[in-house]
Nucleic acid binder design. Structure first.
Lengths: 84, 84
DNA sequence: TCAATGATTAGACAAATGTCTAAATAAAAT
DNA sequence: ATTTTATTTAGACATTTGTCTAATCATTGA
């Protein structure tokens, strides 16, 4: 839960998630969309992976990142307790 | 949106929200539940207010904090775009 | 009026965060 | 083999964050 909220607490990481809504993408393809350096994006991807919001598969020299939506259920559950 | 995720990215603040689920409470009553100093809790409440997650009304020398659940709709909306 | 109570503000400080460049690793292409 | 390409790791650095104590503000009570 901590890792989840931490991962979501950054506009770049949220933008990465929205990008991955359109389908899996390599680290490089994701990085192209942003003005930040590749290492910075790599670090963001790492935090998203720690929160299990994305998964990664190595394909040759590329690393493909995929959105994992099952984690959102946990968040929805937490939110639901406030719905009265 | 930034202020919302920022406010949620702290276990103490999330615990405060859960506390307020049971009804409004004064700053002091909230602070009693935690091991942190009153100023620290006051600061957390300030961040929650900035995110519009709570509202505050002064009642005499007390300040009563109330959960504002309407903001959760914004979050639900953001989450919904990932539901496929 | 003066002291006590509830709460916030101000300022300090260590820890965490987001960014960068340089270096390392691994696979592909020449 | 060597070089290029894709990505991550390591380290540095400024900014932000969460906490504290001390001081201030505002209301209530003696």
């Amino acid at each position: 839960m901590n890792a989840l909220f931490k991962a979501l607490n950054d506009p770049t990481r949220r933008a990465i998630l929205e990008r991955l809504r359109g389908g899996p993408a390599t680290a490089g393809a994701i990085a192209e969309q942003f003005q930040f350096s590749a290492p910075t994006i790599s670090h963001h991807l790492d935090l998203l992976r720690q929160a299990d919001l994305v998964t990664s598969q190595k394909q040759g020299q590329f690393v493909v990142y995929t959105l994992n939506m099952t984690v959102f259920d946990e968040l929805l559950g937490w939110l639901y307790q406030f719905k009265s």
